[in-house]
């Protein structure tokens, strides 16, 4: 009995209603405690500021006077949460795997690294131009009935569908299972 419960919590993937509810409740919780909207992507500006302390670019200089603020701590927490999750599930500490991408693409490691870097660059640039990412727009924004977030989320999903289908056709050659 206890073993079944602990497997359900720590090893098996959670039901979408459980995970979705726990993510959703963060939005009102962060407002209640800190009057702050859920969001992650702006925090990457904190990292840029830390790496380029003396940058004279106006956006970095004006928007990130102190990069060691809550945004950075939130990001560090997410890394730690992922670490805890992998530890309790018994996964290995470090892995070169990235699901079926590494199983099927057959790309040399260096090309895969470049591939993920390019994907990441588009995430970073796109999130800043769009004014937020999945957490800030798709969850926080839509839950507050912001029309802009609904439109942005539709385009997020459209872009994702285009990219994944191109990936399927040219590199992975099939479905997700």
């Amino acid at each position: 009995m206890i073993e079944t419960i602990s497997r359900g919590i720590f090893v098996e993937s959670w039901h979408f209603l459980v995970g979705g509810s726990l993510i959703g409740i963060l939005v009102p919780l962060l407002y209640y405690f800190y009057n702050t909207g859920l969001g992650v992507s702006t925090g990457y500006g904190n990292i840029v500021k830390i790496l380029l302390r003396t940058s004279q670019l106006r956006w970095i200089k004006e928007k990130f006077p102190n990069p060691w603020n809550w945004r950075l701590f939130f990001m560090i927490g997410i890394v730690f949460g992922g670490f805890l999750s992998a530890r309790v599930s018994g996964a290995s500490i470090v892995t070169m795997e990235m699901g079926i991408f590494t199983q099927r693409s057959g790309l040399p490691t260096i090309f895969s690294a470049v591939y993920f870097f390019i994907g990441g660059s588009m995430l970073g640039l796109g999130a800043r131009i769009a004014g937020g990412c999945t957490s800030g727009h798709s969850i926080h924004g839509i839950a507050n009935l912001h029309k802009s977030s609904i439109v942005v989320t539709i385009l997020f999903l459209l872009g994702g569908a285009i990219a994944a289908n191109v990936l399927r056709i040219f590199l992975l050659g099939g479905g997700a299972s």
Partner: peptide, 16 residues
């Protein structure tokens, strides 16, 4: 920006 983000999301299989 949203479309660029979406392409990156589908490509990298991750968001920020």
């Amino acid at each position: 920006g949203a479309l660029i983000f979406g392409l990156g999301w589908g490509m990298a299989g991750a968001c920020p």
